[in-house]
Simulated assay, not measured.
Amino acid sequence: MTLAPQHNYWGHTSPPGIPTVYSLTDSGSIRVLWALEELVGQNALESYNLKAFERSNTTKKAPEAMKEGFRLGKAPILTVSPAATPDEPPTPFVEGRLILQFLADHYAKGIWDSLSPEDQARNIFFQEFAGTTISTLTSLTLTMDMIPEATPWPFKPLVKLLFVPLLSVFKETLVEPFKLLEDTLSDEKPWFGGSRLGLADFCMIFPLDTCVARRYFDAGKYPNIIRWHKTVHELPAYQRAVKKMGGYNDSKI
Rank of each mutant, 00 (worst) to 15 (best):
M144P: 01
N49L: 14
K109F: 14
P152N: 10
P19V: 14
K179A: 04
F217V: 03
L161P: 05
H233S: 11
G110I: 04
A241I: 01
W34H: 07
R122T: 06
W228V: 02
K60P: 06
E118T: 14
T138Y: 00
I124K: 14
R240G: 08
T59F: 15
F206E: 04
S114N: 11
Y107H: 06
Q42I: 02
P82F: 15
D250E: 10
R196V: 10
D119E: 09
P207I: 01
W228D: 10
F178N: 07
E118S: 12
V21N: 01
A83D: 07
E54T: 12
R240F: 08
Q120V: 12
A4V: 10
E37F: 04
T58Q: 15
E128F: 10
L98W: 02
H12E: 15
K60A: 15
K252I: 00
G220D: 10
A83P: 11
D105G: 07
I111T: 13
H233N: 10
D105Q: 12
S56C: 15
K230M: 05
Q120D: 11
L167W: 00
W112S: 15
G73R: 02
A200R: 01
I205H: 02
H229Y: 07
Q42R: 14
V212G: 00
K51C: 13
K156E: 12
I147V: 14
A241P: 07
K230F: 04
V212K: 00
L140I: 09
Y216H: 01
A52T: 15
L33G: 09
K244S: 08
V80K: 01
G11D: 12
P154C: 09
W112D: 14
T85M: 07
V242S: 04
R122S: 15
Q42H: 13
E234K: 03
D209Y: 00
G193S: 05
G73T: 06
E54C: 04
V212W: 00
V175W: 09
W10S: 05
L235W: 01
K230S: 15
G194K: 02
L142F: 05
R97M: 15
S47I: 05
E188M: 10
L45W: 02
K230C: 10
I124C: 11
L162A: 11
F102P: 03
W10K: 06
R122Y: 13
A84G: 06
I18M: 14
L235V: 03
R31H: 08
C211T: 01
